[in-house]
Design a protein around this nucleic acid. Sequence first.
RNA 1: GGACUCGUGGCUUAGCUAGGAUAAAGCACCGGCCUUCUAAGCCGGGAAUCGCGGGUUCGAAUCCCGCCGGGUCCGCCA
Length: 578
Amino acid sequence: MFLEFKKEAEQVLKDALKKASNYDDIDPILDLEVSNHADITSRIAFSLANRYKKPPTAIAEEIVTQIAIDMTHPTDTLIADVVAAGPYINFYTNEFFLHKTLQWIKAGMEITTTTPNKNREKVILEHTSANPDGPLHIGHLRNAIIGDVLVRVLTRAGYDVETQYYLNDMGRQIAVVVWGADRIAYDEAKKADHAVADVYIAANKLIEGNSEFLNDVEELMRRYEAGDAEIVQKYEVAVKKCLEGIQATFRLLNIPRVVFVWESEFVRSGAVREVIEELKQKGQIELDGSAVLLQLDGIEKRLVIQRSDGTSLYTTRDLAYHRWKSKNCNRVIDVLGKDHELVAQQLAKALELLDVKPPEFVIFAFVSLPSGSLSTRTGRYITADELIEKIEERAYNEVDKRRGDLTESKKREIARKVGIGALRYDIAKVSPDKHIVFDLDDALDIEKKGAPFIQYSHARACSILRAAEPQGYAVSTDYGYDYESDDSLLTERSEIELIKKLSMFSYIVEGISSDLKIHRLGKYARELAESFNLFYKDCPVLNAEADLRRVRIALVDCARIALRDVLALLGIEAPEEM
RNA sequence: GGACUCGUGGCUUAGCUAGGAUAAAGCACCGGCCUUCUAAGCCGGGAAUCGCGGGUUCGAAUCCCGCCGGGUCCGCCA
């Protein structure tokens, strides 16, 4: 609902600028921002001051006098007041805005987009895309969580999102696994992806420095690219085994519906060859022996698009993949580690040559351990599975400490929600360009004001509604607003602050769907929980006088919905008690 | 060496894209609040020359330049 308020403020300001004839020539950059001092504020007076050589305070004053809001009916506007505070023009919401916000929440919080026709546009979002040579580790976890939160936010904003996991099945790593699987048995007692990692690590040790084995591996790669049926079959067994484990981890993390796209498909379909031929015609080509290099605008590093032996490379295959993605949707989004940044730039430039709109990249900095960087090959990593198990155990201890009264299965269920929630929140709340040194003890310390804090607020809201029912207090949609007098029964500061915070939901979702900065969602979720906790402390609900009780119960219900939904966007489950 | 990126209280972070009203939180620390809807909560306190130096500006954590420190990349690997 805040978006609607902002839109109205924009319109009012534009009209005022038109009326203040001195300023009507400018293209209005309204400079409207959320502020501590008002519900929304405009700093436009500063830029006008520069242009017209007048003090900004005078300009702000002048503009405000031109503002006219028709208030013949209180429900014609969401604005209560506009005042000049020095150089700032401050806008304040009215009672009707609060009322509309609650109605809107109860009706499902539809996100009205600012740009038309965006609804149901198709997005293909690629995340994780880890090599299928072992389990996901905490580096992949960051990728997966950022990606999954984006998928949830974009879906909520009205996009039709497909999540893809690009499967690098043509790399050397997989050939090593396939080679190893012929000599070393999988440990069937282990989770599939962990068993694959064992084989991968052991095979690497055997191959290291042994040129005969190295040749074997290269032979495998050649035959796979050529589509040798026997080899393809072996590859499929190994890759699918690993994938089975990775998907199990995704399920634990609440990451649903991921479509696996096999890299090799683009080679066998001829798409890679087409890309290479087209680049040879359209691009600035250099030859190094029989290898083909492409010089890209603004990038010093030349991109090799074809090897001396004529076989394809990862980047060219990726180009074919991206061209295909682009043909099948309106927005292509890739979540990538920082190590792929140069490749991403080359990819974007090469796609431009092919007249394909480049993807939007979300690039995140590395996760390392206090002992150094992660490596699947050397076995130096903490797996996502291990982390999930430990954090759930820690969460169980916390639940057990507080709720000894619950049944074992109930405690386990809450521990699972709290544990995964804490993990996801910890990663989602940090800006992707911050390097993370992962400290296991720190991650397991779920006393902090993270996901459990937000979940707890939700549980409290549920608890009130649970207690209301047996007393015969139904949840109504009466928010205590009087259309005649424009009065509201919700007048406490904490009530109003809570409703205003609730109204920001769509603003945040809409914002993230364009700037893709998911850490803003974590901040909003925490602020929402804080607002609810303040309301909870200040305003008795069930013991309030009957009319007030009715509208406060309705407010609690709205808060419950918003907390549940914001947690859902973070991929965190909202327990009804904890 | 070159390119990119990060550097904000003891620790972890938000704010930086489009410069503006007292730099905002969490953890840790100190003190207070459970006969009322869950104390995984609430209130108060101390704690920051926003890495350093210059520049642009009426105004810089935010933009520009230089330096220092951490990270990533610079394969006919993926």
